[in-house]
Simulated assay, not measured.
Amino acid sequence: MVARENVSGVERKIWDLMKELSVTLENVTESPSLEVLLIASKVLGVRKEDLLSKNIFVPADRERNLRQLVMKRATGYPLHYILGEKEFMGLSFYVEEGIFIPRPETEELVELALDIIKKYNVRVVADIGTGSGAIGVSVAKFADVIVLATDISEKAVEVSKKNARRHRVLERFLVKRGGFLEPFREKFDLIDMILSNPPYVREGAKLPRDVLFEPSEALFGGKDGLNFYKEFFRRYNVEGKIVLMEIGEDQVEALKKLVPEAEFLKDSSGRFRFLLLNRHFF
């Protein structure tokens, strides 16, 4: 083991430390070495590429901090809450406890939305349950549209504003606290497209340990997971609009009964993932 003494205590080389700490995460993640590397990069303020190429000494106080965060991760606490960010659509989104962490598969929803926006010259997009703002901010970043976003969480409103500011789209990303599209009732007729990755997990479903640290209101959609869809389509007449939402792969048959005109699209892994209802352009 390579170490040296200084005024703050014993310093160890980062490669030895990462190798030791990776063992701690073997039962938590399929990529323990990578996760320790990412946490170490955050703690030390050093790019991960530099940590891999330079076997630097780690000050004792930084080692303590690194160990604490790795042990926290070992409890199942989400990696991205520790890192304070999650990449989505090539953009870095700030996330913290209480905010739903954007998923890679949701990038495909955004890509579909961008194609539709371009094809039909969509001008105003709604984003229900914006969370970190991943969907709405990404759409505003990559398309010249106005986004009207909502969330029932005040923390989500503030975090999504922060991300809109980070990516310089705050002037075209308007977010308000409230359920569904109620905060923008007066602008409902102006909306061309409605996007959402709503809560659709069935109550009682077994989920990975780290997912259980995320806000339950962003995950669970009632006994059958369909509460959001039932209430949305009961509440709003979407004639003249395009609706694109993420769904559970086993919910297609139930949703066909609820929304007979909808089209159901598969993601890149071949699983049904999206509900598309186009009542605007036929």
Rank of each mutant, 00 (worst) to 15 (best):
E85F: 14
Y200I: 13
F180H: 06
F57Q: 11
L69W: 07
F274C: 00
D210F: 10
L265I: 08
S31G: 01
E49V: 11
E105Y: 11
V243R: 02
A262H: 08
N55R: 12
R166V: 05
V137P: 04
V137T: 12
A218D: 10
V147K: 00
G84S: 12
L37Q: 10
V23A: 14
A60D: 13
S153T: 13
F180C: 05
V95L: 06
L44G: 05
P215T: 06
F272M: 03
I39L: 04
M1H: 15
N65T: 15
K19V: 13
S132H: 07
I194R: 00
L195Y: 00
K161M: 13
G221W: 10
V211F: 02
R103I: 05
E87M: 07
E105R: 02
L148V: 04
L170Y: 11
A113Q: 01
K118N: 07
V259K: 12
E158C: 04
L148P: 02
L195C: 01
L83H: 13
R273T: 06
F233I: 13
I146D: 04
R64S: 10
F173Q: 01
T29D: 13
V70H: 09
F184I: 11
L190N: 11
M71G: 00
D115M: 02
E108M: 00
F88Q: 02
V252L: 03
S268K: 11
M193Q: 06
V243L: 03
G129K: 09
L21S: 00
A156V: 13
P215D: 08
R235L: 12
F228L: 09
T106D: 02
A218P: 08
F57E: 11
E30G: 08
R103F: 11
K19C: 06
D210W: 12
E108K: 01
A205P: 00
N65I: 14
G129C: 08
I101L: 10
F173I: 03
K72S: 01
V43K: 01
P199N: 07
V10G: 10
V175I: 09
M245Q: 03
R103Q: 09
K141P: 06
V43R: 11
E35I: 00
P104R: 01
V259M: 14
E5A: 14
I14C: 06
M245E: 06
G45M: 12
V28W: 12
N55H: 11
H280P: 00
R209A: 14
V169E: 02
S216F: 14
L226Q: 11
S22Q: 05
M71Q: 12
K19E: 15
K54A: 15
E20D: 14
L181S: 07
A164N: 01
E5M: 15
P78E: 08
K155L: 15
P78W: 09
A126T: 05
K256M: 13
M71K: 10
A3H: 15
F213P: 09
R177N: 11
F228W: 14
A140R: 04
F100C: 09
S41F: 06
E63D: 07
S196I: 03
K86L: 04
R103L: 08
T24S: 05
R12T: 15
F272H: 15
I56A: 03
F100M: 14
F57T: 10
L109M: 00
P59C: 08
A149Q: 13
G84D: 13
S33V: 14
A164H: 04
K141D: 09
D16I: 05
G131R: 09
D127F: 14
E26L: 03
R67S: 02
A74G: 03
